[in-house]
Simulated scan of single mutants.
Amino acid sequence: MTTLREKSTDSVYQQLRTKILSNEFRPGMQLLERDLVSLFGVSRTPVREALVRLQKENLLQIVPRHGIRVRQVSLADIEEINQVQTSLEATAAGIVAAATLRAKDLAPFDQALQRHGAGAREKRPRRLVRRRRSLLRASAEAGRQSSAHADRQ
């Protein structure tokens, strides 16, 4: 059973991670625990636990008595993200290809694919990651639409 503190930690973790990956919290930015407590409206414990998780993912660096710093994304990080994303995209594409979809089910997927194609030429890795994530969400949604359509028949 999930406790309230675990839910708070997960919520803070997800929100912080999103802010980092969306570049709202930019690389090199200094964060203070008390500011994050105020921002998320939780106690220090969920914030600390979320920060430790993000440090383990190399998204943050915790400097005792100095605060928290958002880490720079390295070329190795980008390559690793690209490998994982490519694998996920192939799986998602296989699911969509195997599904019986109607044209209206594919519209969100097609829009995300267009945005992703336009963004692939950019030199902004975080924006590319966001577009890929959007593409995967649209692909998953298209698969759910297909499943729902098949269940009705």
Rank of each mutant, 00 (worst) to 15 (best):
M1E: 09
G94S: 15
L4S: 09
F40P: 03
S146M: 05
S134D: 14
S146P: 03
I68D: 00
F25R: 02
E122T: 15
K56A: 11
G28H: 08
N58G: 07
K19Q: 11
S22P: 06
A103G: 07
R34A: 12
T18G: 05
L32C: 07
H149Y: 11
A112L: 00
S8D: 08
R121T: 13
R130N: 11
L113A: 14
S147I: 15
E80V: 05
T86W: 08
F25I: 07
R26F: 10
V129D: 09
D77L: 05
H116T: 11
R71S: 06
A138P: 03
P108F: 04
L31N: 02
D35S: 07
V52I: 12
P46K: 03
L88P: 02
R131H: 13
L31Y: 01
A120C: 14
V37Y: 04
D10A: 12
V84C: 06
K104V: 11
I62G: 00
E24L: 13
I20M: 05
R48N: 06
F109I: 04
R71A: 03
F109K: 01
S11L: 09
L51V: 04
R144V: 11
A120H: 12
A103M: 13
D151V: 14
A92E: 06
Q83N: 12
R152W: 14
R44N: 05
A148W: 09
R69H: 07
S74L: 09
T45Q: 10
V63W: 06
L135P: 01
R69D: 02
A90N: 14
R137M: 09
T86A: 15
E80G: 09
I81A: 12
V63R: 11
A90C: 14
L75E: 11
E24M: 08
L54G: 02
Q55W: 01
P27F: 07
R48E: 02
R121V: 12
L16G: 01
N82S: 14
R130L: 15
G117V: 08
R44V: 09
Q111A: 14
A112Q: 01
Q111L: 13
I78N: 03
L32S: 08
N58H: 11
T3C: 05
S87Q: 15
H66R: 15
T2C: 04
A140F: 11
L21F: 06
I20R: 01
M1C: 08
L75H: 10
A140P: 00
Q72I: 08
V70Y: 01
R71M: 13
A93F: 14
Q61H: 10
V129N: 08
L21D: 02
G117C: 13
Q114L: 15
P108I: 03
G94W: 08
Q14C: 03
R127D: 10
P27K: 05
I62C: 01
L135A: 04
P108Q: 05
K123V: 10
L51K: 00
R126T: 10
R17L: 08
Q61Y: 09
R115Q: 13
P125I: 03
V84G: 01
K19D: 13
I95C: 06
N82G: 10
T91N: 15
R71I: 03
V12Q: 00
R34P: 04
V12S: 02
E6K: 07
K7I: 09
K123Q: 12
R53H: 05
